[in-house]
Simulated assay, not measured.
Amino acid sequence: MFKLIRLELRKSKFTFLKGVLIADLAILTAMILLIFTGMDDGEFDTYGEIFQGVFIFVKATYIVFASVLLSKLVIDEYKNNTITVLFTYPVPRKMLMAAKLIIVFLFTFFGILLSDVAISSLLAGSLYVFPNVIQETLTRELITTHLLSAGTDALYAAGIGLIPLYFGMRRKSVTATIVSAVLIVSLISSGNSFGGFRMGDLFGISITLALAGAAIAYLSIRKIEHQDIS
């Protein structure tokens, strides 16, 4: 499986690193502007609110990234009928499809986790230089809690990132794949403020959507041997 993943990465010319860096810099800049412009309104009074704001941006960005990656690795292959060539290889179809979906899942999980930690760390370091912005003290307990929460939420988000595969495969449409991801992000991330209620904050909603993504991935792999690829 590892060799298949490596070959798939080489074949697809995985060039998301530049986009990831640009997205992370944009999120960092947006958060800095929001923190300093929202000082008078008290929107970011605690590190918890700042970390939550970072995660909302990061999760939304990488779920959309996941849909783009699904489009590149799966949907485009079906749309252009190049998947027929791929399935002539002496490797079970299930393993080929599984390799593609594992790439998407791991990219989303590690992308969210690492970006969240990196951006949060940079913001915390910046706020240390400006102690009057946040009155709260950044403790080891707060950092540990955030890391555990970020890891768990990244896992859920990686599962959610597979849901657009269902919509894309129905019509072999890249547009449907990406639009469905944007709609999912809007559904789970919308709220009145960074400290307010969001549907994505509910454990039941997050785990249900993550399991739905896992089920879609499983069904895509299970049916691939007998699926009409024309």
Rank of each mutant, 00 (worst) to 15 (best):
Y128R: 10
D201V: 00
R198G: 02
V185D: 11
S193C: 02
R170Y: 10
A124Q: 07
S186K: 03
F203V: 09
T208D: 03
A124C: 06
V133E: 05
T108E: 11
G125Y: 05
M199F: 15
I119W: 13
A157C: 12
A154S: 15
I178G: 08
R198V: 00
L202Y: 14
V182H: 08
F197L: 09
S180A: 13
I134H: 05
T152S: 12
A210V: 01
V185I: 13
T137P: 00
A124D: 05
T108K: 07
E136K: 08
V174W: 10
M199H: 05
G213D: 00
I207A: 08
E141H: 12
H146Y: 15
V185A: 14
G195Y: 05
K172D: 03
I207S: 11
I112C: 14
I184G: 07
L148N: 13
F167L: 14
P164A: 03
M199K: 06
A154Y: 13
V174K: 12
M169N: 04
T208M: 12
I207R: 12
I160N: 01
G125R: 07
F197A: 13
G213R: 00
A215S: 10
L155G: 12
R198W: 02
F194M: 02
T145Q: 11
A158I: 02
T208G: 12
A157S: 15
L209F: 13
